[in-house]
């Protein structure tokens, strides 16, 4: 029984947490691709930027003496950080991408421009915060939640931290809100129409400029959310999300670019695949070693821990070969 709980803690809990972060990031990537038809490479750094904005807001709250007894301050300031990042995302679009779009530049040029944006954001963050790491939990405690399992022979507990619980809850809220927005509201329907066929949407009288702006607002807000969640789970550093932008792209592609719900599925798929790949499966096999026809080795992970991130790339490459437009059919440039 303890082995199963160990498995649950290491694969399921870690997978849900990682998957939530990937999913929230990948929704933004996939929406931008669906509407604007280019791979927005700077999304990872928008996430980092959102994380740093939340961090600054938290410092501000602490300086003002505002403390929250139940939840970490990082979560309280999250909505404000999302709004600020959304505004910055609109500014980035206006300053960097809109002029290129107006010139009729190809998606490839926009992708290169987004790398420029990546470098600028990362450079600015590093210039102002240095290259060290920062923590949301300098003054606050990260609460650990232990749930005893009411089963015979179980001495281990199911463990996760309070921020992890909150981040999964906020992911659920964000996804439900996004679903309602896309399926019920007029603007959401306009967005889906534009993702399907931009020219047709425009001639049917849809305000495409507004749709583009709304896309950036949603993508920016979600980026801030994903970045802050990641920073609350690990530590805040300038290349925080730059390192996971590829798994996020992998999630978006696996789910089919342009499909928000595909991105969510892709995010969790990649999150679980990563945690399951580095899990030492011999732990689970030990208790039944007697009935197995082979000897159980001491370590039996699919890949060594160092290769955790490469799991996402392998999945990405396999999916690209097997079904190039993703598991759910995605958009093409």
């Amino acid at each position: 029984m303890n082995e199963l709980i160990f498995f649950f803690n290491n694969v399921m809990v870690a997978g849900v947490v990682l998957g939530s972060i990937y999913a929230v990031g990948a929704i933004g990537v996939t929406l931008i691709f669906g509407i604007l038809r280019f791979a927005h490479f700077a999304h990872g750094d928008m996430m980092t930027m959102g994380g740093f904005i939340a961090f600054l807001l938290m410092l501000g709250c602490q300086a003002l003496g505002i403390t929250t007894p139940l939840v970490p301050t990082g979560f309280i300031v999250l909505p404000v950080a999302m709004v600020l990042t959304a505004i910055l995302a609109l500014g980035i679009d206006k300053g960097f991408y809109a002029p290129l779009r107006a010139r009729g530049a190809r998606p490839v040029t926009l992708l290169i421009a987004s790398i420029g944006v990546t470098l600028i954001i990362q450079g600015l963050i590093r210039l102002s915060f240095g290259s060290g790491t920062w923590s949301f939990f300098e003054t606050e405690q990260k609460q650990l939640i232990r749930i005893p399992v009411p089963l015979e022979g179980a001495t281990r507990t199911i463990n996760f931290t309070q921020p992890q619980l909150l981040m999964v809850l906020s992911t659920v809220i964000a996804v439900v809100a996004l679903h309602l927005f896309l399926s019920r509201s007029r603007l959401g329907k306009a967005m889906r129409a534009m993702a399907d066929n931009a020219d047709l949407a425009q001639v049917s009288g849809i305000n495409t400029k507004l749709v583009v702006r709304v896309t950036w607002v949603i993508a920016g807000g979600l980026a801030a959310m994903a970045g802050t969640m990641l920073a609350l789970d690990v530590n805040l550093k300038p290349d925080l999300a730059f390192n996971i932008v590829l798994p996020i792209f992998a999630a978006a592609i696996v789910g089919g670019l342009g499909k928000p719900f595909g991105a969510i599925a892709g995010g969790y798929l990649i999150g679980f695949a990563e945690t399951a790949a580095i899990f030492n499966w011999s732990v689970l096999l030990k208790p039944i070693a007697g009935v197995l026809p082979f000897e159980v080795p001491a370590t039996m992970a699919v890949v060594p821990t160092e290769y955790k991130l490469t799991v996402a790339f392998v999945i990405l490459v396999v999916v690209l070969l097997w079904r190039p437009t993703g598991i759910f059919k995605g958009a093409q440039t």
Partner: peptide, 26 residues
């Protein structure tokens, strides 16, 4: 920490250069 910050300047400069190039000399 001027030393460590200054060494990060190159990333920013690179970003600005590529942005300007795409805009004015594509």
């Amino acid at each position: 920490e001027i030393q460590s910050r200054a060494s990060q300047m190159r990333v920013f400069v690179l970003g600005v250069v590529i942005t300007i190039a795409l805009r004015y000399a594509p």
